[in-house]
C-alpha cells in the first residue's frame, strides 16, 4: 500500500485518504454557462504532473497533492492556504 504524506498528520497509508478531484480555477459566479460546464464536466485527464485535492478521512482535512499520474509518484503535498512548493 502506498504512503501519502498528510500536511497535518504526516505519512499515512493511502487507505486513510479520499480523492477529491483536480485542483481547477473556479469560474466567476456569473460566468457564462459554457465556462461552468467546462469546470464541472470537463476533466483534462492528461499524463504528467497534476495537482489534486485529497482528504485525510479520519481528520476530515483537505490538502493538495502534486502527483505524477504516469508514475503514480506523489511529488509533494501542501496545505491549501500555502503557496505550492
Amino acid at each position: 500500500m502506498k504512503i501519502m504524506n498528510c500536511p497535518l498528520n504526516g505519512p499515512r497509508n493511502i487507505s486513510e485518504f479520499a480523492y477529491g478531484g483536480e485542483v481547477k480555477p473556479v469560474p466567476a459566479a456569473d460566468a457564462p454557462t459554457p465556462d461552468w460546464a467546462d469546470y464541472v464536466y470537463y476533466h483534462d485527464n492528461q499524463p504528467g504532473i497534476v495537482r489534486e485535492w485529497w482528504l485525510h478521512v479520519p481528520t476530515s482535512y483537505w490538502f493538495v497533492a502534486v502527483r505524477d499520474v504516469t508514475s503514480d509518484k506523489i511529488i509533494a503535498t501542501y496545505r491549501p492556504e500555502e503557496a505550492p512548493p
Binding site: A18, G20, V26, W53, L55, S60, Y61, W62, P80, E81
Partner: peptide, 13 residues
C-alpha cells in the same frame, strides 16, 4: 455534506 463543507471552505476561507 461535512466533507463538502470543509472542501468549499478550504477554498473560500
Amino acid at each position: 455534506v461535512f466533507r463538502l463543507m470543509q472542501w468549499y471552505n478550504a477554498q473560500w476561507r
